[in-house]
Amino acid sequence: MNIFRLAGDMTHLASVLVLLLKIHTIKSCAGVSLKTQELYAIVFATRYLDILTSFVSIYNTLMKLIFLGSSFSIVWYMKYHKTVRRTYDRDQDTFRHWFLMLPCLLLALLIHEKFTFFEVLWTFSLYLEAVAILPQLVLLQRTRNIDNLTGQYIFLLGGYRGFYILNWIYRYFTEPHYVHWITWIAGLVQTLLYADFFYYYFLSWKNNKKLQLPA
């Protein structure tokens, strides 16, 4: 464990807590894409399949349980909670996210580190996570004004993988044989997808005005 990875995990944890806080306290998921939340639930489900078989550390298992629990409960809130589900704008959140899953699965079947059931699903979860934010960014451009909590959620979600990139660089230089191209490229693509969001988020913060992505 290094400071970059810890910062990344804490930023990731903060992002899911901000979103859970928003949905649980103001009972609203306006501006949040259910499609992205469903994709993230699938990302964690396929990435943490080994939670029962391979034990790394208490921290590792605890965080896996938190990410699994939070992502599935967010989906549950948005789909089934009587008050929250009414605030979900389904006619704006129309990204065909199932079409994202197939290419990720095909790519995982082609490019992976080991051709085993767990490893292919783990690689699938990496590719899927890289594109999982797309429905949310598309929804952001459609809904003119977004509230601060949703903006903070996306900012933290984008930032965590940026910390992981620093972690991979650190591990590359400090651990022999630590080379994972697939993880690195997927993580880089994922972070780059947030580039324009980060730019407009910074502008809105600097000019102290509402965050608005150009249509």
């Binding site: 080994d50 790394v56 580190e113 992981y164």
Partner: peptide, 10 residues
């Protein structure tokens, strides 16, 4: 090597 491959990151 095997331990190396085990995914120790979240």
């Amino acid at each position: 090597k095997e331990a190396e491959n085990a995914h120790d990151e979240l």
